[in-house]
Design a protein around this nucleic acid. Structure first.
Length: 702
DNA sequence: TAATGAGACTCAGAAACTTTCGA
DNA sequence: ATCGAAAGTTTCTGAGTCTCATT
């Protein structure tokens, strides 16, 4: 355990640059020895939360000064996970039992807790890095002279610990009602203590109010640091941001004090700390349903609507730019096309100690495989955010002359370049965003994804006419189909888990069985027609009651399912006929289900629903078509999108809608067309310089 | 001064947890 | 009516984007 933090203002290091620094910093100084247990913190008053939380219609309030998130902010800091409790289960090293100190055991247990078939240990290449990183960090944490200091990973057997953890999971699963109630009460207690904040007089939920527990860093894909030890963070590493007149929260861990306390109303976070893997800042912030998040969400979608008003001019701008005289302009235009049409992310530069993933600006020659000469086809394949595979065969001629030009440009950019070289050498996210900014104030690359996602949803959702006479269930299916189009556009995927594969297998088997059964029924109908009904096999009696073990029970239900099409007594022809019809319907439904599941298994609909599709489109569509909103948005989404719930049924994701509300002349797309023309004219004007640049370019390419 | 890096926020799928479904 | 599986929902924290300060 690190020593309790010294008072920040007494230690001599300069205070971080904040606007308002706590004046009475000394009150945060801990005594040199741990304090005796303190009186528990007083919970915030227990108000009827749902009522209070919903009462605040922030979108009807006047906005705060620009750059200001709050005027008054009160909260209780954050909660910390319990200290490690040793279990005493030994490690087997080189065939021998080895008892571990609590410190050693904790880290070993982190490793034993990583599932063998998960994304880290399930893949051989990733597992190698993960295990090696874990092991070296583990040994590093041991003092010199420790018996395991020079241990070999291959000689470690974590089996007993894994078994113990599995046992613990089973025990938790089998908890009594009383135990469950106790756990729930504890969770609620924590929520009342730390889960709420008072923002300008309104009670709001905190998103993450429990410090991230220690463990092994689960970097995604081929992350060089995956498996490294993520250390326990203490209050002394946490800076609390709170209103100046609010009471500084009491530190909940005895013997510790907050590392720092500041009063900066320009930021939305309540607490921050640094994680030890990448030395990055982490934050505790309000929940998705809060006013902070709601406001910025609304602004995000309004900006996307504004883009809709400017999109024609912007497209004309990059279409012209594809033929620009400077290669920088041509690259800019080509990249904009990819971002607009293929919904690529902008793609910032990444470091050596991160997974090798790319976006538009970081695409490399090796990611593009050009089709046969004479065609304008290309396979674009790369790992994007979260190492998700983007793989698409693109026929650029399908996008008309513009598409063909884009293809020709990409061919030219790649020509004479090595596979590992970047396609776009003259641009990066900064230059690209600067250009976008000049076309529309506030425009950046990611807005295209929001705009295209929302626009696609609006276009794909069937009209009220088309939905007439449909059941609500059928309408929801239509909604999900539109949602799926958006998810595919944004390349939102999910990996097919082991459990999912298993359930596919089960469903497939069931379909096969039902088919067999229908064939049986048809054969029996023939027997009945031939007057040989007596030959029809009947349902066996004697259900064995004594199915005490799980295996037997399973077998029993399996037998029951297999015989489910049979009759107790010799059936009549009509009985058979009816059952065949029933089985045909059942089969059809199962096959539709299977196909639907198959289509969806690798597509994740949630991400676009939460982050990309303007909720007002969905709300208005539900109102027009009498679909209860809870069929589309689960509880947390309805809370997140409260601000969108009161739109009229005819609300449209259109620039005009926005203009009707804001009535700002600067929003006129006409003005931006002029800017686009300006930029274009400027590019044309610098003709002479460009020629020189081009010559340099030729030399570079040789 | 352009590049570099820090800071703060959005967006991402996996995993955990809860509810519903179907035999 | 019950019980296990499947589906739906929420939580968690890693991975991006984008802006601004620093050198």
């Amino acid at each position: 355990m690190p020593a309790p933090s010294a008072c920040p203002s007494a230690c001599g290091t300069p205070a971080p640059q904040t606007i308002y620094l706590l004046s009475q910093g000394h009150t945060a100084q801990p005594p040199p020895v741990p304090l005796p247990p303190r009186a528990p913190l007083l919970p915030l008053p227990l108000l009827p939360l749902p009522l209070v939380l919903q009462a605040y219609k922030w979108w009807e309030e006047p906005p705060l000064a620009p750059g200001r998130q709050w005027s008054h902010l009160e909260h209780n800091g954050m909660s910390f996970p319990d200290e490690y409790e040793p279990h005493g289960v030994p490690l087997m090293y080189d065939g021998e039992e080895m008892e571990l100190s609590p410190e050693d055991e904790e880290i070993a247990t982190f490793f034993a807790d990583v599932p063998l078939d998960g994304p880290q240990l399930g893949d051989a290449a990733t597992a190698k890095v993960f295990s090696a990183n874990f092991f070296s960090d583990w040994k590093e944490s041991m003092p010199t002279g420790h018996p395991l200091k020079n241990a070999k990973f291959d000689k470690c057997d974590f089996g007993a610990m894994r078994a113990h953890l599995q046992q613990r999971r089973l025990i938790k699963k089998a908890a009594t009602d009383g135990e469950r109630a106790a756990a729930k009460a504890e969770k609620e207690r924590r929520f009342h203590l730390f889960g709420l904040a008072i923002v300008d007089g309104h009670l709001e939920k905190v998103g993450n109010f429990i410090m991230e527990p220690p463990g092994l860093f689960r970097g995604r894909g081929k992350h060089p640091k995956t498996g490294k030890l993520k250390k326990r963070a203490y209050p002394s590493e946490v800076t609390v941001n709170i209103g100046e007149e609010a009471k500084v929260p009491q530190c909940p861990v005895p013997g510790f004090a907050w590392g720092n306390v500041q009063h900066d109303p320009g930021v939305a976070w309540l607490s921050t700390w640094k994680e030890n893997i990448n030395n990055m800042n982490k934050y505790a912030m309000l929940s998705a349903s809060s006013s902070f998040k709601g406001k910025s969400d609304m602004e995000k979608y309004n900006k996307a609507m504004r883009l809709k008003g400017h999109i024609d001019a912007i497209r004309r701008n990059y279409e012209r730019g594809l033929n620009a005289s400077t290669s920088e302009m041509r690259q800019l235009a080509t990249a904009m096309w990819l971002i607009d049409k293929l919904a690529l992310r902008v793609g910032g530069e990444k470091g050596e100690d991160e997974a090798d993933t790319v976006g538009c600006c970081t695409l490399r020659v090796e990611h593009m495989t050009f089709g046969p000469a004479g065609t304008r086809e290309m396979e674009l394949e790369f790992l994007g955010k979260d190492s998700m595979l983007f793989k698409q065969n693109i026929d650029f001629t399908a996008y008309g002359d513009i598409g063909s030009k884009v293809f020709d440009n990409l061919t030219a950019f790649c020509k004479g370049r090595k596979p590992a070289e970047q396609v776009f050498q003259k641009i990066d996210p900064t230059t690209l965003n600067k250009h976008l900014q000049s076309l529309m104030p506030g425009l950046s690359a990611k807005v295209f994804r929001t705009y295209n996602a929302s626009e696609t949803l609006q276009q794909q959702l069937p009209s009220a006419d088309a939905l007439k006479n449909m059941t609500v269930q059928a309408k929801v299916v239509e909604y999900n189909n539109a949602n799926r189009e958006v998810a595919i556009l944004c390349n939102h995927q999910r990996t097919v888990s082991g459990a999912m594969l298993k359930s596919f297998e089960n469903l497939g088997e069931r379909v096969a069985k039902v088919k067999e059964q229908r064939a049986d029924l048809k054969a029996w109908l023939k027997l009945a027609k031939d007057g040989k009904a007596k030959k029809i096999p009947l349902k066996g009696r004697g259900s064995s009651q004594d199915a005490d073990d799980d295996e037997e029970k399973k077998e029993l239900t399996q037998r029951k399912f297999e015989g489910s099409h049979m009759f107790a007594n010799t059936p009549s022809e009509e009985q058979l006929q009816r059952k065949i019809e029933g089985w045909t319907t059942k089969l059809k439904k199962m096959e539709v289900d299977l196909r639907d599941k198959e289509q969806n298994k690798e597509v994740s609909l949630g991400t676009s629903k939460i982050n990309y599709m303007d909720p007002r489109i969905s709300v208005a569509w539900c109102k027009r078509n009498e679909v209860p909103i809870e069929r589309i948005f689960a509880k947390t989404l309805r809370d997140k999108f409260v601000w969108a719930m009161n739109v009229p049924p005819d609300w449209r994701f259109d620039f005009e809608t926005l203009r009707a509300v804001t009535a700002e002349s600067s929003d006129e797309p006409k003005a931006v067309t002029a800017v686009a023309d300006d930029a274009d004219a400027k590019a044309k004007g610098k003709g002479d310089d460009d020629e020189e640049e081009e010559e340099e370019e030729e030399e570079e390419m040789d």
